[in-house]
Nucleic acid binder design. Structure first.
Length: 118
DNA sequence: GAGGTGACGACCC
DNA sequence: TGGGTCGCCACCT
């Protein structure tokens, strides 16, 4: 009973959508919390996107959370990453990272609203 | 049951 | 242009 309740609340549509969008991020591209939130129609709920990333690590499906950074291109969630550093994962995809910040963030930026032809 | 916190962003001054 | 404040909603204490 409790499990059922947890599933219902933890797997809200909003969170599910966030996971789906993050998984759709192409290799070598990155996006921001705000972009995802705006794409889902909750521009002012960017915090929830960040929280979704936190719970994303508990999801069965792999979620490339390292491709999601804040508006400044800063790897704000790197501290939450376990194992391989976020920077290393991004560099492997061809994204240069300097001082915990993505170089040419605009160039690598991937807007779901545009790429997904909203 | 209520208050505080948080991987952020937008708005206001 | 830059600093400060509010909002948003789920989770934790």
């Amino acid at each position: 009973m409790q499990k059922h309740n947890i599933e219902k609340s933890a797997q809200s549509d909003f969170f599910e959508q966030v996971y789906q969008v993050v998984r759709l991020i192409p290799k070598g591209r990155v996006t921001s919390y705000g972009a995802i939130a705006r794409y889902l129609g909750a521009a002012r709920s960017s915090r929830m996107v960040g929280w979704a990333m936190n719970t994303a690590h508990t999801q069965q499906e792999y979620v490339p959370a390292h491709r999601v950074v804040n508006r400044n291109g800063l790897l704000s969630g790197k501290h939450f990453f376990t194992g391989r550093p976020m920077q290393e994962l991004l560099e492997e995809e061809g994204i240069a990272v300097k001082d915990d910040t993505i170089c040419d963030f605009k160039k690598h930026f991937w807007d779901p609203g545009e790429e997904l032809s909203l």
